[in-house]
Design a protein around this nucleic acid. Structure first.
Lengths: 154, 154
DNA sequence: AATGAAAGTGTTTATCC
DNA sequence: GGATAAACACTTTCATT
């Protein structure tokens, strides 16, 4: 665990964050114009937010479908007794699993899987079936694509 | 639906994509050095991948916990008969829902929710309970943080 | 903390292969 | 489709407040 210095999310910082969430490649100059500060001031604020862990990184948003993964599924995984650690390792080693959360309740894990086609499901599920009960839901539509929550009461 | 021109994901393009996924702010110059092309050539390849929809955008990765949302949950939602459209609209209007997928199976929707604390769950679930059956799993640990899948067989 | 100006670096355009 | 080079824009540093 790294120490996380606090940073104040004042108006300018929120504007900067919002702009960088929408386009991580926004130039300092553009940001500076938006918030009415100089470019070096904006740079320093970004540096502080990075250091405080508010900004964790900058990622290109790549279409999995364009990469050949036309299907996605959400798989709930309930490990068989004593198999929890082994299930966790198996999941981690499956590159088709693009996200997995450990959760409360009967299903210990909920994983998001990308697939080239439905036949690909077996590639993921077969190795799991000796370790866990699974329940698979194929994604028909991204009803709400990943989006940022609002700022909590300020 | 926009027309999507095809683009070849050859070696250089994969290297560029990989670098931009890891750091969307990587400079053209650095990318050019990595792939052994000139900066304008890299720029043109990026432009083509953007146009083809392979690169959908560039986003700053902001910590929801740092924004005050220390908890996340995954909620499965099974609308009551005839309430599907209303459920969908309700979900869309809840800013705490940062992602939601329409899926096959009994649960029509699977949503990812951010919360300030457990009490916040009611804010999300109460309006839903007149429209749907819900099943909530609080996230204990991000076993696998969002990551990119491998390139399909080339 | 922020500014302004200068120095450094990266990006874009134009031309040619 | 890619390279080079010049023009342009952006970023960083630094002295100052």
């Amino acid at each position: 665990m790294s120490f996380v210095r606090k940073v104040t999310l004042d108006g300018p910082n929120r504007t900067i964050l919002g702009a960088l969430m929408a386009d991580a490649r926004t130039s300092l100059r553009t940001l500076a114009d938006k918030v009415g500060l100089s470019a070096p001031a904006v740079r320093e604020r970004i540096r502080q937010m990075e250091e405080a862990g508010v900004i964790q990184g900058y990622a290109a948003d790549v279409s999995w479908a364009a990469l050949g993964y036309g299907l996605q599924a959400i798989v709930r995984i309930e490990p068989l007794p004593g198999k929890l650690r082994e299930v966790e390792r198996t999941l981690q080693d499956m590159p088709q699993i693009v996200q997995c959360d450990g959760v409360t309740g009967d299903d210990c894990f909920i994983a998001r899987v990308v697939l080239r086609d439905v036949a690909d499901l077996d590639v993921v599920l077969d190795p799991l079936h000796v370790l866990a009960r699974t329940s698979t839901a194929v994604i028909k539509k991204a009803t709400i694509p990943l989006r940022a929550p609002p700022y909590p009461d300020s």
